[in-house]
Amino acid sequence: MMDAFERFGLLINDRVVRTPIAIASMAGIVDGAFARERAPHAGIAFIGGYSIDEPAMKAAKAVAAGGDRKEFLCEDPVGELKKQIAILDGSTLIPAINLRGTTPEAFASVADALGDSVVYEIDAHCRQPAMVDAGCGEYYLKNQQKLTAIVRALKAKGVTVSVKIRVGVAEDDRVLARNLWAAGADILHIDLMDSGSAKLRQIRNSVPLLIIANNAINTFDRMREMLSHGADMVSLARNADERTLSGLDAAITRYADEDGWYNSPKQLCRGGDIRSLTFCCMPVKECPLIPALNRMGIPKDDYIALKLNSVKGTLLDGGQQTCFGSLAWCCKTSSPCMFRDMTLKQTGISKKEYMRLKRDLSDTIMGRVFHDVPSDESR
């Protein structure tokens, strides 16, 4: 799995993620067997959703009785979850469980029973009326204090927490994301609906959490669109068939091996997210960089010092022949630049290695931007 870590650099629950593709939960469908069959072409599987307390179970039975949707109906959810998780033992899939419940105590109780070997995903996504009326799913997006209370209850158990959300339901998805970060969430699993990459970029610019983008991602072009606007991974549900998964897995692996940075952002001046500061030149002219720095509260001199200090002693430190005398200020390899390419050739740096170094620089910049965890605005 070390090749996978070198290729994608992804760790979840202290395990290497084999590929940046997740299997998303579908109630009544995605169980251990469903996920296990797809293990060769996915990195993490969210089984569920499973209802874990009486109000959620009652809602699940009402949904199933309607005849239009399936549900996992079990009187002993902990026992059933143990059985389903065991099916994934020995596979390269990281196990995750999508849970529907109405109280922090219900989630904490499951964590006590199952321990820290799985990722716990709070379902704040389901929009079935019975679930919402019971205080589950989308209910949490309009009652964020209750959602963050569940995050804190799970984090108190020392487990990894994902939150599955649907954009366009909360009053401000950026505030929601920051509240979840403040509460301790590790992963945001985002159903983008019809909002596209602009909403994803806004959320990426708001939090440093691992982001999984979801909704109609069934082609490599769509996958790259999500990755280039801030996603670390993508997830599939209805399109999680072997042909689609294997095609995406092969394509992103090939792209990573050729480019060096599998989810490299677009440049800032072309609509890129905050990670693209790694490709920006010195702030010496009016361009999107200046307002971006102003929004982040980073003075221009601090930004210059940050980039130059971050590349000291690395292969990006050189580049006297480039526009600003250092590869720290050079753009993405997809943008033609004779001075950058000449410097790379003279110093023996491949374009793939250059992009990996730019990814490292981006991580450093992100660490500076998101140094302080915000207060929970929903309290």
Score class of each variant (00 low, 15 high):
L93Y: 03
L93C: 05
I94T: 02
I94Y: 03
I94F: 03
I94N: 01
P95V: 08
A96F: 07
I97Y: 04
I97V: 15
N98R: 10
L99G: 04
L99Q: 10
L99K: 10
R100Q: 13
R100C: 12
R100T: 07
T102G: 09
T102P: 09
T102Q: 13
T103N: 04
T103L: 02
P104G: 08
P104Y: 05
E105V: 05
E105M: 06
A106W: 02
A106D: 07
A106H: 05
F107D: 11
A108M: 08
A108K: 00
A108G: 10
S109K: 15
S109C: 15
V110N: 11
V110I: 15
A111H: 12
A111R: 11
A111E: 12
D112R: 15
D112G: 12
D112I: 14
D112Y: 15
A113D: 15
L114S: 06
G115H: 02
G115F: 03
G115V: 09
D116Y: 00
V118Q: 01
V119Q: 02
V119T: 09
V119C: 03
V119E: 03
V119Y: 03
Y120R: 14
Y120N: 13
Y120W: 14
Y120C: 14
E121I: 11
E121R: 09
E121C: 15
I122S: 12
I122F: 14
I122E: 08
I122N: 11
D123F: 06
A124G: 12
A124W: 13
A124E: 14
H125K: 08
H125L: 12
H125T: 06
H125M: 10
C126A: 15
C126N: 11
C126S: 13
C126K: 01
R127G: 13
R127Y: 12
R127A: 14
R127L: 08
R127K: 09
Q128E: 14
Q128T: 08
Q128N: 12
P129S: 06
P129W: 01
P129E: 05
P129N: 00
P129R: 02
P129D: 04
P129L: 02
P129G: 03
A130D: 10
A130S: 10
M131R: 00
V132A: 09
V132Y: 04
V132S: 07
D133W: 07
D133L: 08
D133C: 04
D133A: 14
D133T: 13
D133G: 08
D133K: 14
A134H: 02
A134K: 04
G135D: 05
G135V: 07
C136T: 09
C136E: 05
C136R: 00
C136K: 01
C136F: 05
G137M: 06
G137H: 05
E138M: 10
E138V: 12
Y139V: 15
Y139E: 15
Y139R: 13
Y140T: 03
L141Q: 11
L141V: 09
K142G: 08
K142M: 09
N143Y: 04
N143W: 03
N143P: 01
Q144D: 03
Q145P: 01
Q145G: 04
Q145L: 04
L147H: 06
L147M: 08
T148R: 09
A149Q: 04
A149E: 06
I150R: 00
I150C: 02
V151C: 00
R152M: 11
A153Q: 00
A153D: 01
L154R: 06
L154A: 07
L154N: 08
L154I: 05
L154V: 02
K155A: 13
K155R: 10
A156C: 14
